[in-house]
């Protein structure tokens, strides 16, 4: 049996008696790109900080490639690279110096070849000898990604890596992340850009109020919970919506020639087509669109919010 890249069991953390992470468990297999999503204050960063060792664990266990991250912290920390959400840099040094230092902190000798790959791929070449304080916000983020990767970690944790960065860097970053993932690095990422998570992650966990409220393959999650919207274009305008379409949350456009409909989980487009034909509506075109992760995310977190956020 493969040892998980990351195994979290019954992890709990409270601040002043208020739970930040509430008894969560999940595992990530080697080679995965795994998304940890949730609204602000859901407990994602606290979870990541406990994995990385910045935050103490109240109870529960974290194993990284089979090693306990408290008892065997030297082993686990040398295999993990963390890019924190907040920009944390040492203003005294240049990018080049800081990257060399970071390799050393992780107990590995500086590897100029790997360092150069990171510098080149992240567009840092022109800024190598600038001190950190003179870098723009985007460059600081690029540097932080390089810093997290300098010791070639087996598990890379990216906490909101694209927050506040331009489109170009976002694309560059995701290309690079996919590439290092193909070479065997397991990725755990959080992002507020759910479209990115949808494109990048094989599996997604959703946290809310410290609880794990969903954990599934991205496609399964979208299929199970995702609604589908349908746009029906009619040959002849309608004056009123037929009552039979109310169960599809139908809305008639002003011209009367288009109907927007929503297929909830359990309803199929076949059923809808059948109903439309039974009503004698003459269709010119039928356009369907599956709900995005963003819509699913909102649906799940709202449900969990109204039910108090139960762990599945």
């Amino acid at each position: 049996m493969t040892v998980p890249a990351l195994a979290i069991q019954n992890l709990t953390k409270s601040y002043d008696g208020k739970p930040a992470v509430n008894d969560i468990s999940f595992a990530i297999q080697p080679g995965e790109i795994f998304g940890l999503l949730g609204p602000n204050g859901a407990g994602k960063s606290t979870t990541i900080n406990m994995i990385g060792g910045v935050t103490r664990i109240d109870s529960g266990n974290i194993e990284i490639f089979g090693h306990d991250n408290r008892r065997e912290y030297r082993t686990t920390r040398s295999t993990v690279g963390v890019m924190h959400q907040e920009i944390v840099i040492d203003n005294f040094f240049t990018i080049d110096q800081a990257l060399k230092f970071h390799a050393g902190y992780y107990g590995v000798r500086d590897d100029p070849a790997w360092r150069n790959i990171l510098i080149e791929r992240l567009g840092l070449s022109e800024h190598l000898h600038k001190v950190m304080i003179k870098l723009s916000g985007g460059l600081k983020r690029r540097f932080m990604i390089a810093k997290a990767l300098i010791h070639k970690p087996r598990l890379l944790i990216l906490d909101e890596p694209t927050a506040g960065v331009d489109v170009e860097l976002r694309l560059t970053l995701w290309d690079f992340v996919r590439e290092i993932n193909r070479q065997g690095t397991t990725i755990l990422l959080t992002t507020h850009y759910l479209e990115e998570a949808q494109q990048m992650c094989g599996r997604i966990a959703i946290m809310n109020h410290g609880n794990l409220i969903a954990l599934e393959e991205t496609t399964a999650l979208l299929q199970r919970l995702g609604t589908q919207s349908v746009l029906a274009r009619l040959a002849m305008p309608l004056e009123h919506l037929p009552a039979a379409l109310h169960e599809y949350h139908a809305e008639l456009t002003e011209s009367g020639t288009q109907i927007n409909l929503v297929l909830s989980p359990g309803q199929t487009s076949g059923d809808l087509l059948h109903t439309l034909c039974q009503l004698g509506l003459e269709l010119v075109d039928l356009e369907t669109r599956r709900a995005s992760l963003e819509e699913v995310f909102l649906q799940i977190t709202r449900q969990a919010g109204s039910s108090g956020g139960e762990t599945p």
């Binding site: 230092f101 107990g107 791929r121």
Partner: peptide, 22 residues
């Protein structure tokens, strides 16, 4: 991108690096 060879963990290097940085 060419695969990068694994580098061995050197136990005293974190100390030496922090000293050097300071």
């Amino acid at each position: 991108m060419k695969p990068v060879p694994e580098r061995p963990f050197i136990s005293w290097l974190p100390f030496y690096t922090l000293l050097q940085k300071e």
